[in-house]
Design a protein around this nucleic acid. Sequence first.
DNA 1: CTGAAAGCGCTTACAG
DNA 2: CTGAAAGCGCTTACAG
Lengths: 336, 336
Amino acid sequence: MTVGIKDVALAAGVSVATVSRVIGNGPVSEALRSRVEDAIRATGYRPNLSARRLRSQHSQTIGLIVSDIRNPFFTAVSRAVEEAAYHAGMRVILCNSDENPERELLYLRLMQEERITGLIFAPTRTTLDGLDGIGLDFPVVLIDRGGPSGGHDAVVLDNAQAAATLVDHLHAQGYRRIAGLFGNTSTTGVERHDGYRAAMAARGLEADARFIPPYAEAAETEVARWLGGPDRPDAVVVSNSLLLMGVVKAVRGLGLSIPGDLALAGFDNEPWTELVGPGLTVIEQPVHDIGRTAMELLFERLDAPARPARKVVLSGTCVVRGSTAGSKSLAGAAVP
Amino acid sequence: MTVGIKDVALAAGVSVATVSRVIGNGPVSEALRSRVEDAIRATGYRPNLSARRLRSQHSQTIGLIVSDIRNPFFTAVSRAVEEAAYHAGMRVILCNSDENPERELLYLRLMQEERITGLIFAPTRTTLDGLDGIGLDFPVVLIDRGGPSGGHDAVVLDNAQAAATLVDHLHAQGYRRIAGLFGNTSTTGVERHDGYRAAMAARGLEADARFIPPYAEAAETEVARWLGGPDRPDAVVVSNSLLLMGVVKAVRGLGLSIPGDLALAGFDNEPWTELVGPGLTVIEQPVHDIGRTAMELLFERLDAPARPARKVVLSGTCVVRGSTAGSKSLAGAAVP
DNA sequence: CTGAAAGCGCTTACAG
DNA sequence: CTGAAAGCGCTTACAG
């Protein structure tokens, strides 16, 4: 039915070993090589990857588990990872955990069964805590969520500094009641919170932070309540683009204006942040570098399994727009 | 090194056949089953999927090739496909062609080598035209881009009607110089154009349509030029959300207002379309149904390879917002 | 229900 | 450079 290596060998009048060498770029004389290539074309032969992987004992596959593929941050990182993998002759298995620890475990198991070469992973805090106990047979590089420098290679944003930058910017614009809204499933939310809190303290301001599930709906509900209550802030720092969207919705739903009634500063320079209201001030992450660096760390780890874990911390860029204009009016501009 | 089925068999004191039956849910006595399960836990055994696939001759894998994973339409469809696949005990390989026919061919080859069970595919026009000549060994279900009902199962939006709905709506709002902007890589762009043109003709209006690459940048450039020229429209129908974003950027870049200087109606009810300017009028696609239906068609095709191809055409919903408010003011509301 | 044995489609030492 | 042969880790008739 479907054509195998034997059919090609027969058609080319060579052994299967020779066909295998041709498709694997092994040493073959030009004469035989072209005969085999003709036979491959004639038969429409396609090598069976399961067989190749089983026999050769390497999968040429890297795993990538992200926490929410709807978050454009992760689709951008995925693209960078795939590009790097492609150039290295590897493919990638992309899985989406939806911030669900059970699904993370499920996918980790799948990765084991696929015998992947290595994993790039943005884990929930729950799974990160138990990661060492799982006994994975491959190296893992964490992205976006490193946690305290621990046993794993990681590439993350300088979250604390980025959050502090936003606080400082808001402060410079004249805001004082600066609240913070953070995702509660990732170490990233925690680190951004720490930076926020430290910067507030340094300015002698009182922090007012909330941790919520990292979805737009949760932010919308939370902020609607917040703005109606006694602790109403006049500015808010928001720890990811999904939450940011929810905040914008809440403000609009209440018929309030940005930044007049509430100034807004968030993370991730998605295309739409430029188009909403007066434009949203955000920290832009080097998404492409994050993906590429993760692959580099992974390859280096494969080369040198024993060397100590490394954590690469990348800086974000603050893109200032109208959502933080404050009393002094301010045109949109990029600030390094 | 890594533990195999033999190690488990040894540890449990049974044959490898019995271990295989346990992990495959075959018939095994309770006594042996629990002994094997203990051994699996004790050894941390994970079956090798390559070996299972090779031996069992089914990959339990479906392929999914989308044209642009940054388009939220496709990330939403992917989620629906994955969900359905998961419930059917299958996994999915997701690939991103970037609207590039060469990459499509590359991925089709990969799918063959993976021996996938079936493919869900959003092809470029180029690849769609040559699809029958490629000799794929698995069934394919087209999504988003069906082309003329041909040899393939497909699930698509009623594109012509959706585009006509937008034209009719704009007409009812008092607009007459209604332009159209369409992606040039997909049959979808063509069908939406046809619906646009027919609706314009039915109203006695002159059509003014342009086909461009389906990226925000292309739309931005094109519209900036258009609005500066002699054929300046007062409304525009835009065939996808990436293009729509580009149009909004162009309008803002010129300091013009929506809908005062230009009314806008597009496709895909992305979260941000609600938040930009007065809100954007769009056709909402049943993204979840599209993914689910594609999987259903695929399974039915696997059951009955010989039966004639089916094309499922789903209707969109017009979500009216301020971007098409026209002279009469209009609040945002959903219209079926 | 259980086990011994064959074999899925390849790759890779090993000889020549 | 080339081929014969073993074997990757499983599953699945086939007997019992």
